[in-house]
Simulated scan of single mutants.
Amino acid sequence: MKGISVSSLTAGYGGRTILRDISGVLPAGAVTFILGPNGSGKSTLLRTLGGALPFRGRIRFSERDAASLSPRERGRMVGVVTQSPSLNFPFTVGEVITMGRLPHRSFLERDEGGKKAVSRACKEMELEELRDRTLPSLSGGERQRTMIAQVIAQEPEIFLLDEPSSALDPNHALKLFRFLERMAAEGKTVAASAHDINLAAEFGSFVWIMKEGRLAAAGKTGDVLKGDVLSSVYGSTFVPYRREWTDFSGTPPACNGGEKILWRAV
């Protein structure tokens, strides 16, 4: 089975256990949002899946045990956008995006698709005019777009994104999630954490909801985003409201059109 499966996953750092006995599937061909209150384990989960933290239990990527992957194999398979990357080095935007091709390079093997992948990533995140700018000269949103573009250039099977739109303006956030929808339609596995429940309602096919380091609910978005589930996790009362979801042309997108049930806390 493609996608990510975890069994009895337990992880943490600094001697503190954050994730506790998590089992579930992040399916291929779908955008899965990881929701939950502050401190619920969303970032720790993504860091663990991305290989940054030790863990107990099992992680499998498309039927391959994560522990069996070499760094290069993992780099070709899994792309990670962290929440607070260190971007103080004076690399240019173009150089940072090109670093996404490192897993595809070796002394004996040419990266034939590298230039095309980098150009595509620049175009997707609208960075063509910033390619020669250095990272310290960028705004927060431009830096975030650069790191997303690096992962796009990497061309992974799996995208793991921690709060990927936190610094983006509405236009670039929309472009990002449209891109992620296209990746899912091509069979990629996409998992993104978010605080905004309605991002999941509009763009997510599946949802995982975390609470106190455990998986509180998981499944199709419409089945999981219910008032009673949200209230039990967040400790507030949630009420639904409906609206017709369209793009700027007034036409509902084929993959996500029609009436949407959104939520607000009261």
Rank of each mutant, 00 (worst) to 15 (best):
M1E: 15
K2S: 11
T10G: 09
A11P: 12
G12D: 14
Y13E: 12
G15D: 15
R16M: 14
R16D: 13
L19W: 04
D21H: 10
I22D: 03
A28W: 08
V31K: 05
T32L: 00
T32W: 00
P37C: 06
N38A: 11
S40P: 03
K42E: 01
S43M: 01
S43A: 03
L46E: 02
R47C: 00
L49T: 02
L49A: 00
L49S: 01
G50A: 14
L53R: 03
P54T: 10
F55S: 01
I59G: 01
S62D: 15
R64A: 11
D65K: 07
A66D: 05
S68M: 07
L69Y: 09
L69D: 10
P71Q: 10
R72S: 11
R72F: 11
E73M: 04
G75H: 11
V81S: 02
S86D: 14
L87C: 06
F89Q: 05
T92E: 01
T92F: 02
V96E: 04
M99R: 03
H104N: 00
S106L: 01
F107E: 08
L108K: 07
E109C: 11
D111C: 02
E112Y: 04
A117M: 05
V118M: 03
V118W: 02
C122T: 12
E124Y: 07
M125K: 05
M125N: 04
E126I: 12
E128Y: 10
E129F: 14
D132K: 09
S137W: 13
G140R: 11
R143W: 12
R145M: 14
T146I: 14
I148D: 13
Q150W: 14
Q150I: 14
A153I: 07
Q154K: 10
E157N: 08
F159Y: 14
L160Y: 05
L160C: 03
E163W: 04
S166E: 11
S166Y: 13
L168Y: 13
D169R: 03
N171Y: 15
A173S: 15
L174D: 12
F177L: 07
F177Y: 13
F177W: 07
F179Y: 14
R182G: 10
E186Q: 14
E186L: 15
G187W: 09
G187P: 04
K188G: 06
K188Y: 08
K188R: 12
T189W: 01
V190P: 05
A192C: 10
A192L: 06
A192T: 06
S193N: 00
H195G: 02
I197N: 02
L199S: 04
L199V: 05
A200R: 01
A201L: 08
F203E: 11
F203H: 09
G204L: 12
G204C: 11
S205V: 05
W208G: 02
I209E: 03
R214V: 13
R214E: 15
L215R: 01
L215D: 01
K220W: 10
T221G: 06
L225M: 06
L225I: 07
S232E: 13
Y234K: 04
S236T: 11
S236P: 03
T237H: 10
P240W: 13
P240C: 14
E244P: 03
S249G: 04
G250N: 03
A254P: 05
L262G: 00
